[in-house]
Design a protein around this nucleic acid. Sequence first.
DNA 1: TAAATAAGAAACCAACTGGTTGCAAATATA
DNA 2: TATATTTGCAACCAGTTGGTTTCTTATTTA
Lengths: 103, 103
Amino acid sequence: MRRDIFQAIADPTRRAIIALIAIQAMTPNAIAQHFDTTRQAISKHLRVLTECELVRQGHQGREIYYQLEIDKMKEIDKWLEQFRELWETRFQQLDELLLTIQK
Amino acid sequence: MRRDIFQAIADPTRRAIIALIAIQAMTPNAIAQHFDTTRQAISKHLRVLTECELVRQGHQGREIYYQLEIDKMKEIDKWLEQFRELWETRFQQLDELLLTIQK
DNA sequence: TAAATAAGAAACCAACTGGTTGCAAATATA
DNA sequence: TATATTTGCAACCAGTTGGTTTCTTATTTA
């Protein structure tokens, strides 16, 4: 199964997990305590996030810390780049319009 | 059915549609010609995009032009904001490290 | 060593997704 | 007005998803 970063962030629970471990690495149990669902459900979400390399495991005894791979997040930013140009052009056009009105 | 912008961009075909109509508004038939699928499949994707207001319809006779709602794209950018701070901090830390090494 | 804890794996299930085909409504054209 | 075109809608289907329960493995602790 090919995993995709856009598919990974489609789920609201996964987005919440990302925001949570962005601050500091956490174990599945610790993460699950923040949600109204079972540990196994969280574990499956972590698997999806790991498969698309948005998250990295750090083993420490029997505990596994999950850590956000922040660089991977830039891929979304990179995709947005093409559109950012568009909405900035829009602003520019608006600026020109306001300038024309002033005259 | 609640539609979500993150769920909308999860599908690669929908991302391609977004990129396509970002340049100029297009009819479903015209869009479908760019893909190796049926018009109805594209129509369903357009429905998803319309429901989450990523795309706006413009009626013109019996033709319907679909146009990208560029402002809605900013919501993704807005979500990324919290992480952008993180990866910029990383850069800063790297800069500091390099500075220390130089000394 | 025995019990407890942390975590992944497998089996199962209901709901959702993306796709198809067929059909109806609205508009344009002969 | 009859026909063709553009589009949306409904029904259906196979595959995927998110969730649960149960089980196994590995590590810690009493």
